[in-house]
């Protein structure tokens, strides 16, 4: 096979695919628990406990996909890792502090004395907000080429708002799936309010990327690519319509279709991600450095690939086990 002929070609490609997959899984999985954190101020104290119970057994593993994604960037594309992370120095630091606050609040809010609980609830919300907005900011700035110009900063700010709304949507959709009663009804209302932001965000980024770069414009708006790619925007519109319609009707009497908003939101995220990945390939630093220029030595990539290919199916297997054990509506989390 010619594809596997030159390891300097297919190894970087394989790692780019793995890194992309990790980012996508991260955005979906940690997206829903960050989203639940963003919705915290709108819930009553009892509801907050149930919301945490809905994500408690999963968040640790969800966040680990970020470590894998940045780890793959670090180890497979060491040159790009330095360029990207030094350009995003401050937002990365804000995100990390956000992740710290969010992560430890899970533990502290249930273990600290009751009078201190409000402080950890606040830290949980603040941490989720810092993480979501800084990730949106980084996405916006990355899409615009990592330069701090007026337009780019405005775009990054808008992306920060839209990604937070996207996380709020998938968080609400997760709650629709994992809770019932008043909280579920509330979650449906939250989802309805955030869906517009998500639509605007996807449209905004879809419009901005081809306008930013002639290369990306040509990749989308030439024949036959234009027709081959048409399913992406069409499916996105269909999914948005399904979501909008479902949120009018939910919750149903017998809890049918509670899975639909979450599934549709995941679908939207996958489509948006595929579009972005198609636009930016083969660049890892937009318009500056390709994955082939940034890649580590083929020998080192190969030894990592063996490990990754052996372990990723195992990870997916026991993640499925964890989700199976904690399936159904969320119940109170107990150690004993």
């Amino acid at each position: 096979m010619t594809l596997f002929g030159d390891p300097a070609i297919w190894l970087p490609l394989a790692f780019a695919a793995l890194m992309g997959l990790s980012i996508l899984i991260y955005v979906i999985l940690d997206g829903y628990d960050l989203g639940v954190g963003l919705l915290f101020p709108f819930a009553t104290p009892d509801e907050r406990d149930r919301m945490v119970a809905a994500i408690g057994p999963f968040w640790d593993a969800n966040e680990t996909w970020l470590v894998l994604a940045v780890g793959l960037l670090l180890v497979a594309f060491p040159l790009a890792h330095g360029v990207i992370l030094t350009a995003l120095y401050l937002p990365v630091a804000i995100m990390l502090i956000g992740l710290i606050l969010r992560g430890v609040s899970f533990e502290f809010r249930v273990k600290a004395p009751a009078p201190h609980k409000w402080a950890w609830n606040t830290a949980f919300f603040a941490g989720s907000l810092m993480t979501a907005t800084s990730q949106g900011w980084m996405l916006g700035l990355y899409v615009m080429g990592l330069d701090y110009t007026g337009v780019n900063v405005a775009f990054a700010a808008a992306a920060a708002v839209f990604l937070s709304l996207g996380y709020a949507l998938i968080g609400a959709a997760w709650l629709i799936l994992k809770t019932d009663g008043d909280l579920q009804r509330k979650a449906v209302a939250w989802a309805r309010r955030s869906i517009w932001g998500v639509a605007a965000g996807i449209a905004g980024i879809s419009a901005a990327t081809p306008l930013m770069s002639q290369r990306i414009w040509d990749k989308w708006f030439s024949v036959p690519e234009f027709f081959l790619l048409a399913p992406l925007p069409i499916l996105s519109v269909v999914l948005l319509a399904v979501l909008w319609f479902a949120l009018r009707r939910l919750p149903t009497e017998d809890d049918e279709f509670a899975w639909l908003p979450f599934t549709a939101t995941v679908g939207l995220m996958v489509l948006a991600f595929v579009g972005l990945a198609y636009s930016f390939y083969p660049y890892v630093v937009p318009e500056r450095m390709t994955i082939y220029e940034a890649a580590a030595a083929p020998g080192s990539l190969f030894i990592m690939l063996i490990g990754v290919l052996f372990v990723v199916p195992v990870i997916i297997g026991y993640s499925a086990l964890a989700y199976w054990v904690f399936r159904g509506k969320a119940t109170e989390l107990r150690y004993d």
Binding site: P57, F58, E63, L68, A322, V325, F326
Partner: peptide
Amino acid sequence: VITAFFLEAVFLGIMLFGF
């Protein structure tokens, strides 16, 4: 990351809340 971190993080949920 791949061998250790995930092993810890994924089974932690069952270890903590699964008794």
